[in-house]
Write a protein that binds this DNA or RNA. Structure first.
Length: 482
RNA sequence: GGUCCCAUCGUCUAGUGGUUAGGACAUCAGGUUUUCAUCCUGACAACAGGAGUUCGAUUCUCCUUGGGAUCACCA
């Protein structure tokens, strides 16, 4: 049974680069029937702790639908038999394993002050040599009383291992050092804690960013000292920022997943996009539903090179997903995105509006722009017409007279004949009657009706607006244009 | 700087010891006798460079170059 984990630290928001790692770990566990996805909070860094960060992470995962079988819940409770799932509540485990290492002569108290160690480091730098703590290993370290850092007594040698993504890898003895197991504040370092937890929680596959590859010899060395077998590893290539010159990170403005959520992106699009960076199924399929992702995901098809974060592609995918999901579903998700007037409108009417504007939506955040004119009379905005490249060629007087003929024509349609087919026909008649090009006449009417940059087809718009409102809007355009 | 990783259109990627090197985004041009958007069609566009192995390398090897990561009482 595959058991994977996602282990964020509550030091801030979770950005799109981090979440892809969570996604791949999730997919791997779900692809395996009976697999488990575990969420562990690595909160051992008290200095960088950010209040509320954990909740934000949980909400993000929940929104994306990356449900976990074990770990903390939004309610504050925890589920699973291998808890607790906060590292600060697992001190007894670290203590127990640390004592085991001490007894085996593989861990010792660090007698130096941070200043002294910095001195060693500076000296190494002056001599242009790599700094290694083990070169300064004390001969008779004091007994560990919990106030000094506890260090791993390494036995440097070369390591090679298999990585499910990176292939066969190797690291030399130079990378092995006496790293800190437990800090002077009594809490374990990541290097120690994650290994103990992975052992205790019976994690089978470790999926993480490739920045940890450099530490693999250290980890392997620790597993040996612990007498435990390491899990299967899969180190993922990084996602680079848009210019491709750096690992995507918060400092360079990597957005949080929540920003995309608030920006009107659908979880399906986000997941689809994230998966496409580094993974594909070998076919020419571009759109994958979350279910298909689970069905088709395998580590063997994850690439080794880093990818850039290209928002244009995400935007396209989002448009695709907005068109794909059920109207009722879309309607629920759009609930918070309606504009000022839209949110107060009748739900059924809103759903109708949504059904005709959805094809034009790139994100749900576009909704007000594309829908407010259905809920309230838009402000007449002739400059909009003046800046249209087709319409600006036509004198104002001609524009007005075109609108007048439109009013005349449309006002003859009775309420019962106010149908898509009829409107279409009348508009076409109007076209030959006024001897104008569709691009001119219909654009003009469209603007007069909506004063929006995009809108659904004329008949659709007119039906939703109704005859009275349609004619009234044309009239006010005429009046204001004079 | 030491160590490790990576290298196909601008971007995400497929692919093979012999292919017209495929798809998608973006861009541009047409079309859908109704605009904008959607949609459809088409165009533009790539194997970083140099050696070696080979009858033949984008593919295998080495070097160079470029990019990334890592060298914390952060994860």
């Amino acid at each position: 049974m595959i058991r994977t984990r996602f282990a964020p630290s509550p030091t801030g928001y979770i950005h799109v680069g981090n979440i892809r790692t969570a996604l791949f770990a999730y997919l791997l566990s779900r692809h395996d029937e009976g697999g488990s996805f575990i969420l562990r909070i690595e909160d051992t860094d008290q200095k960088r702790f950010v209040d509320g960060a954990e909740r934000a992470v949980l909400e993000t995962l929940q929104w994306l639908g990356l449900d976990w079988d074990e770990g903390p819940q939004l309610s504050g409770a925890e589920i699973g038999d291998f808890g607790p799932y906060h590292q600060t509540e697992r001190r007894e485990y670290y203590q127990r394993w640390a004592e085991k290492l001490i007894a085996a002569g593989r861990a010792y108290a660090d007698p130096y002050t941070p200043e002294e160690i910095q001195g060693f480091r500076d000296e190494a730098a002056r001599n242009k040599k790599a700094f290694r703590y083990r070169d300064h290993r004390p001969n008779n370290p004091p007994e560990w009383n919990g106030t000094q850092p506890l260090r791993f007594k390494s036995e440097p040698k070369d390591y090679s291992w298999h990585d499910e993504i990176m292939g066969d890898s190797a690291g030399g003895r130079d990378a092995v050092d006496d790293f800190i197991l437990i800090k002077s504040d009594g809490l374990p370092t990541y290097n120690f804690a994650h290994i103990i937890d992975d052992i205790e929680m019976k994690i089978t596959h470790v999926i993480r960013g490739q920045e940890f590859i450099a530490s693999m010899p250290n980890y392997l060395s620790l597993y040996e000292a612990l007498g435990e077998a390491p899990p299967i590893y899969a180190h993922m290539p990084h996602i680079l920022n848009e210019t491709g010159n750096k690992k995507l990170g918060k400092r360079d403005g990597a957005k949080s997943v929540n920003e995309y959520r608030a920006g009107g992106y659908l979880r399906e699009a986000m997941l689809n996009f994230l998966a496409s960076m580094g993974w594909n199924d070998g076919t020419e399929q571009e759109i994958f539903s979350p279910t298909e992702l689970v069905e088709k995901f395998t580590l063997s098809r994850v690439g080794r090179s880093s990818a850039r974060f290209d928002e244009k592609r995400l935007l396209w995918l989002n448009g695709q997903w907005i068109k794909r999901i059920e109207l009722d579903d879309l309607s629920e998700r759009a609930a918070d995105f309606w504009g000022e007037m839209g949110q107060k409108a009748d739900p059924d009417y809103k759903k109708e509006v949504l059904s005709i504007v959805r094809d034009r939506l790139k994100t749900l955040a576009d909704l007000p722009l594309l829908s407010e004119y259905f809920f309230s009379t838009p402000k007449v905005d002739w400059p909009m017409i003046d800046s249209d490249k087709q319409l600006k060629k036509l004198p104002r007087a001609d524009q007005i007279s075109l609108l007048k003929s439109a009013v005349e024509k449309l006002s003859k349609i009775s309420l019962t004949d106010w149908t898509s087919e009829n409107l279409q026909g009348k508009l076409n008649e109007l076209l030959s009657l006024t001897d104008s090009k569709p691009a001119v006449l219909f654009s003009l009417i469209r603007f007069a009706l909506t004063w929006a940059p995009f809108s659904p087809s004329l008949p659709e718009t007119m039906i939703l607006l109704g005859p009275d409102e349609t004619l009234a809007r044309l009239q006010s355009a005429i009046v204001a244009g004079k």
